[in-house]
Simulated assay, not measured.
Amino acid sequence: MVQSPFPTYTELPQHEGSLYPDAWGVFGEEDRVGTLNHLTPQRVLNAKNSIRTGQVFNLNLSLNFFTPALISHRGLVQHEIFGLNEFHRDERLDSFFTQASTQIDSLRHFAHPDRGFYNGVSGDILDTEHGELSIHNVAERGITGRGILIDVARYRESIGRPINTMSDEQLSVEDLDNTLAYQGTTLEPGDILLLRTGWIADYRKGRHVPGSPVLSAGLAQSEEIAAWLWNSQAAMIAADNLAVEAWPANRVNLPTIAEQEGRMEPSSHTGMLHRLLIGLLGFTLGELWDLDELGDACAASGHYDVFLTAEPLNLVGGAGSPANALAIV
């Protein structure tokens, strides 16, 4: 259910005890998929117009692409192949971290410290016994629609100001708007935004030193970015970097009352845009998507819209999943 007329960011209610407005109830009091509600059947049907050649692009890195593991608590998949006889093969996976490579975050992945989990779901029930806000809700509806590549890396290179991908450079609303203008791209409600920073391309070139702290350019941790995404009526946003936003997220541009009052200790999550996008606005996020070949194809054709599908694991209680994403141009 999508409200009509759809409220702008400044029209969303701001509750006592919170510094920011939230979208709880906008898609219904029992909603569990947030902005994916923008993917209405008509918008999915219209997305077929973005197929011009039928060429398919895989947007997924391999499960063990980051070897050693990019984030220490998300280790490598242990893959065992075995056979019951010489004419048979079966397999098992151990130490399978669903968010170690190309991924989709569920709405239970992050709450906002001052408000809690999206739509008021209690954190006390977010375990594998309960499916509230879990990735299986996304799997059951699927992600299909018009994808829009926002190739900020290519735009910034064109003006002689390349992104310093292996830093916490913060990309602004101006960067997004200028990139769309450079591409001649107009956003429509329900678009699935694909943000290319060039981070994966530079990782492939060895510009990240294994074992060193991970740095990543990305969206600025600002309320202006959150408002821009909400007002675009995007269904979700996925990026080719670590967290969609810049990392680390320790510039406290998005303070919380809990941290200001000392009820919550500062951590690597302090200042994260995730808290606003997931916890308050109900955005599904994709991270570490492989957008380089797609970027080359879009630049060559001059078309930056694609037909996009993604199908996460039907994992009840899941905090995230491999993306299983494809773009058809």
Rank of each mutant, 00 (worst) to 15 (best):
V2R: 13
P5C: 01
P5D: 08
F6V: 02
Y9E: 04
Q14I: 04
W24H: 10
G28P: 03
G28A: 01
D31H: 03
G34P: 07
L36S: 10
L39G: 05
R43N: 05
V44L: 05
N46R: 15
A47H: 06
I51Q: 12
R52N: 13
N60R: 05
L63D: 13
F65Y: 15
F66C: 07
L70V: 07
I71E: 13
R74P: 02
G83H: 09
G83R: 03
N85T: 12
D90V: 05
E91H: 15
H109G: 03
A111S: 15
R115M: 11
G116L: 07
N119D: 04
V121Y: 11
S122I: 08
D127C: 11
D127N: 15
L133M: 06
I135W: 00
H136I: 06
N137W: 09
A139W: 08
R141H: 07
T144I: 11
T144Q: 09
T144K: 11
G147R: 05
I150D: 11
V152G: 12
R154E: 15
R156D: 04
I159E: 00
G160M: 13
R161S: 13
R161N: 13
N164Y: 09
T165K: 06
E169A: 11
S172H: 11
D175Y: 11
L176R: 02
L176G: 03
L180A: 06
Q183K: 01
T186D: 14
G190F: 05
D191L: 04
R196W: 12
T197G: 12
G198W: 06
G206I: 13
V209K: 12
V209L: 09
S212I: 00
A217F: 07
A217W: 01
A217R: 07
L219D: 10
Q221W: 09
I225N: 00
A227D: 06
A227Y: 06
W230E: 10
N231A: 00
N231L: 08
A238P: 03
N241M: 02
N250F: 01
R251Y: 13
P255F: 12
M264R: 15
G271I: 12
G271K: 12
M272T: 14
H274T: 13
R275F: 14
L277C: 04
I278E: 13
L280R: 14
L281E: 05
T284W: 00
L288E: 07
D290L: 01
D290R: 08
D292V: 08
E293M: 11
G295D: 05
D296I: 09
A300Q: 14
G302D: 09
G302A: 07
H303N: 15
Y304G: 00
D305C: 03
V306A: 05
A310S: 15
E311V: 14
P312H: 07
P312L: 04
L313K: 07
A319C: 10
A319S: 14
G320D: 11
S321C: 01
L326V: 00
I328F: 05
V329S: 06
